[in-house]
Amino acid sequence: MITIQGLNKTFHVAKRNAGVGQAFKSLFRREYTAVEALQDISFSIRPGEIVGYIGPNGAGKSTTIKVMSGILVPDSGTCSIMGYTPWKDRTQYVKNIGVVFGQRSQLWWDVPVLDSFELLRDIYKVPEREYRDNLELLTETLELKEIIQMPVRQLSLGQRMRCEIAASLLHSPSLLFLDEPTIGLDAVSKIAVRRFIRTINEEKGVTVILTTHDMNDIEALAQRIILIGKGRLLFDGGIDRIRSRFGTHKTLTVVYRHHAQPLKVPGAELLSWSPERAVWRIDTASLNISEVLLQLSGRVELLDVEIESQPIEEMIVQLYKEHQI
């Protein structure tokens, strides 16, 4: 569906130094610094995949999305999406994609949501029949019935985001770009948005590319992660690959009957301790959890035991650290 080969993009950003004198000087002569936003990015995505495209701020995520959605022209490299080169066949190509920018609205602020939808229908030249069907499906699955007649300015952020997503799917695109779709949403809306993304992926086979800083989005949706940092592709693979690499650390929480001294377990890192409760961090590659429990049960009377995997969030932080980004 998507094949990207050796994308490069360099921006020339005007350098600004502090001070009035410098600002005045920059009026006449500007110095530019070259920022390499993308360096030799290659990957390919199959139809029906949900891919989490992640990286810290300024890593080049939105530059890649802009190239893939036909907004930006790269300096070099090729990109073929559904047989189109996005920046060359822009108007033909964008009929097949939907884009949601989480921080910017595509709806008309002062009119009912439905009016925006109808204008989008005309912009995309969606046949009436197809529009009706899509609208019905979207209204039902995103629960828009009550809000569709309200002006956008009166909607809550969660309601608005549901409408934004619906708006980007009215023309039945087969590829959907979601740029931080859950930013600023409450827990209930986040879960609703995630569930919906999964539904359209499974039922309509829409390929989804998702950028987000919320690792729970990734965990709930993406089978695959592409990590980018300082313009370079650093990791491309399944979530389970990250898990098996970084997921060997477990957190062990034990509640026991009163015990005055701190409990030492060789090889395990004691994170917190009280006479009733202790928490360790254990690397399962070097230390077996059942052995630890066996050891402990000989020393104290265990009341409760809890073993947790490291959250994906922390694994990503480790991945960032490893690549020094």
């Binding site: 907004i71 822009r90 964008v94 884009v99 920018f101 910017r104 912009i123 995309y124």
Partner: peptide, 14 residues
């Protein structure tokens, strides 16, 4: 300035 021009570019019209 608001970045809304990007939005225009992802629509299939001039």
């Amino acid at each position: 300035a608001g970045g809304d021009f990007d939005r225009l570019l992802v629509r299939p019209r001039g």
